[in-house]
Write a protein that binds this DNA or RNA. Structure first.
Lengths: 152, 152
DNA sequence: TATAAATCATACCAAAAAAGTAGGGTATTT
DNA sequence: AAATACCCTACTTTTTTGGTATGATTTATA
């Protein structure tokens, strides 16, 4: 039950695209902004493109941009294609427990799945962009304790 | 973002213990009921014991039983010790993003964490036991499509 | 029309995590 | 004393994740 870097990085990348709407941004620009490698960014963008979140333009001057306004994209829409559709267990849509009449935990995982999706779909990309602009330095005071030491 | 087998198996084991309260059940009995290996069950029970969910008795006639009535145990309490405390990302309690003033996704993961926990803490083990008894065969009709083919 | 800048596609590799095993030790009952 | 059963540590195997590498295709521009 760990979020993959694809989802974490992917969301950060979408935030950057959302801050600079209506223009194509290349993978090398994204790499400079985020510190991720170009190749890994390509992989992430490929998933986001298939999902219809971003559109790409090839050739010189090309790159990626959001295919819709950030206010019309939920975080769930971004994270699902990067996180195997958030199917944290195999038997979600399909039924399970071969040999058993009734799977007692089926409903549990169903509710959890719905809960996760409803949290993520309740936030739009634009809201997170606005937050990060409004917060500015204000948050800095509150981060004085230990820090995680992984790449965000 | 996959649930581990430890959590899945662990919940199923707790259901079995909850159905037979007030007596000690050995790992070999659990193995017969579930099909999991004794050694792996031992590992799971060890985590649950540390978390105070079950208590153990050693020696002949020993085994495991729930340390509280199933109605007083939430699913979150069972799953957290088996799933690395449900910390799906490293920077949840602690602050993150070294070198950045403000982590724009901090709040996102915080809300998701709260959502996951609140879903799981809203269900008691007893409720799931009751469900599985009430449902009985009724559920069987609804499972006609494809099935997941992993061990539940 | 060449050249450079870019995405696209496929395959591969290495590190980490998950899943499960092995072997022996210790406590308890009979 | 013998059998049962948990406890503890370490190990191995498998799967997933987190990338890389190579090269092809598309597009703008000089």
């Amino acid at each position: 039950m760990k979020l993959t870097t694809k989802a974490r990085y992917g969301l950060k990348i979408c935030l950057e695209l959302g801050k600079r709407p209506q223009r194509f941004i290349s993978t090398s620009e994204i790499s400079e902004m985020t510190g991720y490698t170009v190749k890994y960014i390509e992989k992430i963008m490929n998933s986001l493109k298939k999902a219809g979140i971003v559109r790409a333009e090839r050739g010189a001057g090309g790159g990626y941009m959001l295919s819709r306004p950030a206010g019309e994209i939920t975080l769930g829409e971004i994270i699902r294609p990067l996180e195997d559709n958030l199917e944290f267990i195999k038997c979600l849509g399909v039924s399970c427990c071969p040999g058993e009449k009734h799977c007692p935990t089926y409903g549990v995982w169903q509710r959890l799945y719905n809960g996760i999706n409803s949290v993520l779909d309740s936030m739009t990309l634009q809201e997170i962009i606005d937050d990060s602009i409004n917060m500015g330095d204000r948050h800095e005071e509150s981060i004085s304790g230990p820090r995680c030491n992984h790449r965000c």
